[in-house]
Nucleic acid binder design. Structure first.
Length: 898
DNA sequence: GCGGACTGCTTACCT
DNA sequence: ACAGGTAAGCAGTCCGCG
């Protein structure tokens, strides 16, 4: 097909239309129909890749049921179009079983299954038994035949029916089926060794990887740094390096946001019913397109708000026309970003269009159970991505706390939602336009900021995990890790074990957790030495657990391996042993990722001699690696992980305890006082350069792991509580860990007082400075106390506790915590609440002693409760400073007993 | 009927 | 749907108290 038609079909920035907005809106449906015709008749949808396609990024893959083939979406960065490439290799879905074809032929339901194709005999390596096994590959015509949702799929038929037809009454070995739950397009990706996120060409109809010389040179440079690594690891380092060094494209994308006018202002309209009209849609494109599409309605006033001059406002006489205009956008962008589009915007648009009787092929959206995908491009739902705990904590350092457009926008791009005083239906056109446009703008900026960080992060994670970008952005870190593990199993012709087989063979855990209900013992926390300490060096193991997995060869294969000769290679503090003969896959994969991050990407991301764009790219990569590495140990202890293996997690933690204990002993032997330590760190009091060097060298030599000086505190303040301290760095910045004063649920009033103390402490340089600082802190606390007593606060909201509702309201049956009491009062008032909502309440004199802020008044506040809170918040720091809260607020020792 | 000792529940944090 | 360890506050229970 000709390039030209495709370009026309996509209608990006091209021709700015001179026709006035109104006229254009009227012309819209005609234009759209023309486009549909064009697509259908001339060039057809899907936009098939031509016989020869220039280098393009593999961004997505799916199974196309109609075509009965895997479909790969390629993003061509010059034309900025998506091209579809359908499998033409004849690859088919399959699973494995330990039954022979002879035995399988007796199973009637299998042989007569409409989706059954044929058998093949294969030799695979079984990592659990550490030997080669013969298995039968059952090949099917379509993926649903293997493991569809309906009853009677092949993976269920075999264990159900074989025992009935077997001539031997009791089978010696259980009937087993393997690899039947792998998504077909993932299976295809692994088997064909395709690398999502990487660059491909179509040559004479075939999909072939494109070699980029510049990136290859970088890979070679990188490999020089790792010359010393064992050859076994080199293979993996190079493989990862290629995935990470290849560049990212410039993306073309649009952020969209819709507003729906419902009759009840407080209630979110149900997207499945789509009962109310879509009244406004905003589009903010990376090609400069900024549009607000408004539905004309009776009795709505124009309004006086002003939008930026480059925003085009378009009015529509009918909602149908408006929908068609939005759909045109969704048909044309390779990437569409939303905030909660899976559950709202795209779902609503689809059902609304269906209510109007749109034909299926006129709607550009594919609605799934939990997701909404696009027929042409990719839909990235930022809500799902930012909701991911690993992303929130490790990629964005907890900079946003609530996963709302307002909070994420404020924290990452400094833009907040426009506050609404009325319902959507009561806004003037310009108020509505402004509100809706801002949402699209925040969504856009969240995608564009820091050089398209989010899309590039998704791209890098897609490469590491061999997943389509859409899946990566919606799924958790355990899926990412599982998928690259699966990929390597297939690459090495390993049978992918069933979770129940790993568990049955390797069993549960041997240690006892400190916390009731946990599966095994975790890390050590050292009892802190209370007081103020000057010149504190914090030393830690960079990525301790991944290092342990690497150095100790941990993995489900190697822990409790079948070789008798390995049984002496014991894991400290456990009765378990680890394999000496063969490297575990996890150890190789996680170990090489760790080395790459520590020895290459972390340094490159700080290398000022590199151009800023490259540095930022390296920073994105090291951030992606950080996210994966941080979870790489935990997944083995997570029942939901497909390679769940509790003894592996337990071993990792046990070796960690062993390592830190040895460091502490050695430090003390060297005459260094250990003030505190947690999991992978030790806090050393005023150590000399020599002492530090000796400790580093000893650790490297004895434990085969690096111990680094992470930071040096000018001084640190410890109470007697673990996971609670304050440290002032050389540059005057302050680390506050675990103290109540930084917890997000405490009232702003108390938090502000705490922050003023923190700022004062940051100014202290010498022990002598302390005396002055103490006086100021005493004054601050007294001041705070009297303001409370006199009820002199700026607003009631300063006194609100903000606690997240962890469960649905009805599910608090064992106890009724205070925030739940407040939430129930709110519910009485008709406010809808669900799990995850933040409840703001104040403490009041009368039963039940709590009230939602918005319902409370100044005089019913229980001031003494707040004084008590102030007390406990400051106590954590005051006792180390030798101060006493009660004395500060002027109570004599005697008065305290009264 | 009430207060203290205790356990358990819940949330937010640390590594 | 990555893990375990810690702090804090409150809810609820049990028991003693002539």
């Amino acid at each position: 097909m000709a390039q030209k038609t495709l370009d026309e079909f996509s209608m990006p920035k091209a021709k700015p239309k001179e026709i006035p907005a109104e006229a254009k809106a009227e012309a819209m449906p005609m234009l759209f129909t023309e486009k549909v015709e064009e697509r259908k008749k001339q060039q057809g949808f899907p936009p098939l890749a031509p016989e020869n396609l220039p280098p393009s990024y593999f961004v997505s893959a799916t199974y196309d049921g109609k075509a009965g083939k895997v479909l790969i979406k390629l993003y061509e960065p010059d034309s900025q179009q998506i091209y579809f490439w359908y499998d033409n290799t004849g690859h088919k879905p399959y699973c494995y079983t330990n039954l022979s074809p002879y035995e399988l032929e007796k199973i009637d339901r299998l042989m007569k299954h409409s989706g059954f194709d044929h058998f093949e005999i294969e030799e695979k390596f079984d990592p659990l038994s550490d030997r080669t096994v013969k298995v039968t590959k059952i090949v099917a015509k379509d993926p649903l035949a293997i493991g569809g949702r309906k009853k009677g799929c092949i993976r269920d038929i075999i264990p159900e029916d074989f025992p009935k037809v077997s001539e031997i009454p009791v089978a010696n070995e259980a009937v087993k089926v393997w690899e039947s739950r792998i998504k077909y397009y993932q299976s295809y990706i692994y088997d064909r060794r395709l690398l999502p996120g990487m660059v491909y060409e179509v040559k004479n109809g075939a999909l072939v990887p494109k070699r980029l010389e510049e990136a290859e040179k970088n890979v070679q440079k990188l490999m020089q740094v790792f010359q010393e690594s064992p050859s076994e690891e080199l293979e993996y380092i190079e493989q990862w390096a290629r995935l990470l060094e290849y560049p990212a494209p410039k993306f073309r994308y649009a952020a969209i946001d819709i507003e729906v006018c419902s009759s009840i202002a407080t209630r979110m309209p149900d997207p499945r019913e789509a009962a109310y009209p879509v009244v406004c849609v905003s589009v903010y494109g990376s090609d400069g397109q900024k549009r607000v599409l408004l539905l004309k309605r009776e009795g709505v006033r124009e309004g006086t708000e002003h939008l930026p001059a480059d925003v085009k406002i378009e009015y529509f006489d009918s909602e149908e026309e408006l929908l068609r205009a939005v759909f045109e956008v969704l048909w044309s962008y390779p990437f569409v970003v939303t905030f909660n589009g899976d559950d709202f915007d795209l779902r609503y648009l689809t059902h609304r269009a269906e209510n109007y009787g749109f034909r299926r092929d006129e709607i550009p959206i594919e609605v799934g159970k939990r997701v909404c995908l696009l027929k042409y491009g990719l839909h990235i739902d930022l809500y799902k991505f930012f909701f991911n705990r690993s992303i929130q904590i490790y990629a964005f350092n907890n900079r946003y706390r609530d996963v709302t457009l307002d909070d994420v926008g404020r924290a990452l791009v400094g833009l907040e939602k426009i506050p609404l005083e009325k319902g959507i239906g009561d806004l003037t056109y310009t108020e509505l336009a402004k509100y809706c446009f801002r949402d699209a703008e925040i969504t856009y900026k969240l995608t564009s900021f820091e050089d398209e960080l989010v899309l590039k992060l998704v791209l890098v994670l897609a490469r590491i995990s061999s997943m389509p970008m859409e899946d990566v952005s919606r799924q958790g870190v355990s899926r990412w890790i599982r998928n690259f593990m699966h990929r390597e199993h297939r690459r090495r012709n390993f049978l992918i074990p069933n979770a129940e087989d790993i568990l049955a063979l390797k069993g549960k855990t041997a240690t006892k957790a400190i916390i009731k209900g946990k599966k095994y013992k975790g890390a050590i926390v050292v009892e802190p030495v209370p007081g103020v300490h000057f010149n504190v060096a914090v030393m830690d193991f960079p990525s301790l657990y991944p290092s342990i997995i690497k150095v100790w060869n941990l993995g489900y294969q190697s822990v409790l391996c079948p070789h008798p000769e390995c049984r002496t290679n014991l894991i400290p503090d456990t009765p378990n042993w680890v394999c000496k003969k063969k490297r575990a896959l996890e150890s190789l994969l996680i170990g090489s990722l760790r080395d790459l991050r520590v020895q290459w990407y972390k340094t490159k991301s700080k290398d000022k001699s590199l151009p800023p764009e490259l540095r930022s790219w390296y920073n994105i990569i090291q951030g992606a690696l950080k996210v994966i590495l941080n979870a790489s140990y935990g997944v083995f202890g997570a029942e939901t992980f497909d390679l769940y293996c509790p003894p592996v997690a337990e071993a990792t933690a046990a070796i960690g305890r062993h390592a830190i204990t040895q460091i502490i002993n050695m430090a003390e032997k060297l005459g260094i006082q250990v003030l505190y330590g947690d999991t992978d760190s030790v806090f050393l009091k005023n150590p000399s350069k020599d002492q530090i060097r000796e400790l580093e060298e000893w650790t490297e030599h004895e434990l085969k792991m690096g111990l680094d000086v992470d930071k040096i505190y000018r001084y640190a303040v410890f109470s007697s509580r673990k996971k609670n301290y304050l440290g002032v760095l050389e540059d005057g910045s302050v680390d506050v860990k675990g103290l109540t004063g930084k917890k997000r649920h405490i009232p702003l009033f108390i938090k502000k007082a705490f922050n003023r103390m923190k700022e004062r402490l940051a100014m202290v340089k010498t022990p002598a400075d302390f005396e002055e600082a103490k006086k100021d802190i005493v004054k601050e606390i007294r001041d705070c106390y009297t303001r409370l007593k006199r009820r002199e606060w700026e607003s009631l909201s300063e006194l609100a506790f903000n606690v997240v509702l962890g469960e649905e309201l009805e599910r608090y049956t064992k106890t009724t915590p205070q925030h739940v009491k407040a939430a129930r009062i709110l519910k009485e008032e008709g406010v809808e609440l669900k799990a995850g909502d933040l409840i703001s309440f104040v403490k009041v004199i009368n039963e039940p002693h709590v009230k939602p802020v918005e319902l409370a008044t100044k005089n019913e506040i229980d001031v003494d409760k707040y004084v008590a809170y102030l007390h406990s918040t400051f106590d954590q720091v005051l006792d180390a400073l030798g101060l006493d809260f009660d004395e500060i607020i002027g109570l004599t020792k005697l008065e305290r007993f009264m």
